[in-house]
Write a protein that binds this DNA or RNA. Structure first.
Lengths: 139, 139
DNA sequence: ATCATTGCAAATGATTTGCATTCGC
DNA sequence: GCGAATGCAAATCATTTGCAATGAT
């Protein structure tokens, strides 16, 4: 198991405090934050870090395949340190984004590639609905 | 089978040439155009129509549930007159967006709602890969 | 020492908005 | 005629870019 610094070096990315902080934050959260959310959450510990750096860092991490960008249909992207192509489920009430285990669904890739003769690379699967918590609360 | 004008009136939307043209174009294409693409394709026949009108019309049609907005991860939205929640498959080479028949996949909704106890409303399923045509062509 | 990364400010580009004019009903 | 829809221009907002200063190797 490589350290974050090791992972970065492996991809020929220089190890900077900003990159460490962003990757660390992403791998210790399950909220699938947007760039703005990452920026705000690191403001306290890294007050000089700019939003542009957050974007540039995320771009570098996505290109290095250390992080994936997900698009739940909001106005901004969200990021996930889990780079496997797993489905997500989004609560339309509280807007939380949850992971679904990769094996929660049958092997769709095989099905789709058989039907379409595409050479499939990846997929984005999003389910929308109301989470148990929000179902319970009066609105 | 209602005419386009009938469909619009049914939703209390005024029937204008712009709305007819946009809806007609959307229901006779399978390219899942963006607002910009719609605007350009209607330029000849409707030279006075503004891009803002295209956006406002699409917004009205989406709210009226006559059209759906899809988000394949590009910088702009695409639109589809097929409002059923069907999966899409996108060629990462030529950027075409294709429909998959709704029954091409097993019933995932039931599976997911059983696992998560969400009350599911809809889903967005995107598969990415290289289409047969692009596989054949040298790049 | 070199070259990538940072941080600021300015630019971009899709989409939205304000508002006077026009048009559907 | 009334109120909604159009079209223009200006505004917005996420993201990107240019560039000088800084920092990692």
């Amino acid at each position: 198991m490589l350290s974050t610094a090791g992972l970065l070096r492996e991809r020929h990315l220089k190890v900077t405090p900003q990159r460490l902080a962003i990757f660390h934050m992403l791998s210790h959260t399950n909220i699938h934050p947007s760039a703005e959310m990452i920026y705000n959450s690191l403001r306290e510990t890294h007050p000089t870090m700019s939003l542009a750096t957050v974007y540039k860092t995320l771009d570098a991490l996505v290109k290095a395949e250390l992080v994936q960008q997900i698009n739940v249909g909001e106005d901004s992207f969200r990021y996930d340190a889990n780079i496997t192509s797993h489905p997500h489920i989004i609560c339309t009430c509280c807007h939380q984004v949850f992971d679904l285990e990769e094996d929660a669904l049958p092997n769709l890739k095989a099905l789709v590639s058989e039907k379409t003769h595409f050479k499939l690379s990846h997929e984005q699967l999003y389910f929308y609905g109301v989470c148990p918590d929000c179902q319970g609360s009066v609105h």
